[in-house]
Amino acid sequence: MAFDIREIQTQLEAAPIVSPYSHDLALAILCDTFRLAKVRPPSRADWGAMEDKARSPLWREQVVMLAHVLVSSALRQETVQVLQQNDDATTLLQRFFQDVAPLTAEMIRSNTFRREEFIRKWVRVVGGKCTGESPKGSVARIEQLDYRKAEAEMRRAEEARKKEADKRQQALREAEQRATEARGWRE
């Protein structure tokens, strides 16, 4: 079975924006998903340990959003099909939450790219394939979307810009002094 990302996105666009599930209910939904695939779900202690390990204020909202996207689309059904009985639910979830660490619930709700990233990272972590894509293509798409990587790049670019800020201001000042006053395109 392959995950149809476009179809899942369409289903999610039609679903309520805000997850109606509380944290506890979200945990129950995730546990049930594993149970349906005959995989032992994380225990309460495992969940606690996962939260401690994540040390992220976003972890709880990500759990709630994962439950929401699973229930509101074919993602849950496909996940159940793909999960293997010997999968370790806790390891798998830890890897997923690490992967989506910087994504907020708001981003997943309102931003089509972050929602796609969230879904694709889930598909990757459960070992699924995407409809109409080569494995290489799916990896490349996750690379394009990867917000954590992009954030690091943007931070680096911002630091470089700060270092160059004076030079930049100077260049713009000079450009302003060279200002032309005609209608623009003349030389």
Partner: peptide, 20 residues
């Protein structure tokens, strides 16, 4: 207007024009 451009280099020979 001064934050939208990419860092101007000397080779770009930038000018600032005013729209109407």
């Amino acid at each position: 207007w001064d934050a939208v451009p990419t860092p101007p280099s000397d080779a770009d020979e930038c000018v600032v024009v005013k729209s109407s």
